[in-house]
Simulated scan of single mutants.
Amino acid sequence: MGEIRYSVPDISCGHCVQAIGGEVGRVPGVSAVDVDVDTRTVTVRGEGLDDAALRAAIDEAGYEIAG
């Protein structure tokens, strides 16, 4: 199982967690999504993770990845 972590500076509340988790959770291969308000990170676990698709899902939720 692979893991990819993103820094998303605009994460600030439970709505952020739900919005990002919902979009990223729909990406094929994703088995778990952890959105951490304290560290403002999104950690995705799964098989055959597609970085571009994950980035697009975070963007679709209305958030930008740092860097």
Rank of each mutant, 00 (worst) to 15 (best):
I65R: 11
G25H: 06
A57G: 05
V24W: 00
R45Y: 14
L54F: 08
A52R: 04
R26H: 10
D38N: 14
V17S: 03
Y6P: 00
E23L: 04
Q18P: 01
E3P: 06
I11Q: 06
V27P: 12
A19I: 06
L54T: 02
V8A: 08
D10S: 09
G22D: 10
I20R: 04
V27K: 02
G46P: 09
G62L: 05
V44E: 01
A57T: 07
D51P: 08
S7W: 12
C16L: 07
R26S: 11
S12Q: 09
Y6A: 05
D38M: 12
G29R: 13
P28N: 02
E60A: 15
I20A: 04
Q18A: 15
G67E: 00
Q18E: 13
I4N: 06
V30K: 01
D10P: 00
S12D: 13
Q18L: 11
R45P: 00
I4L: 14
T39W: 08
I11H: 06
A66N: 01
S31L: 12
G25L: 01
V17Q: 07
A19D: 04
V8M: 09
G67W: 01
I4V: 15
V33R: 03
A53K: 02
I20D: 00
E64D: 11
S7C: 07
P9E: 13
G48T: 13
R45I: 15
V33S: 08
D51A: 13
A66Y: 01
E64P: 04
A19G: 02
H15E: 01
V30L: 07
A61F: 03
I65A: 09
E3N: 15
E3Y: 13
V44D: 01
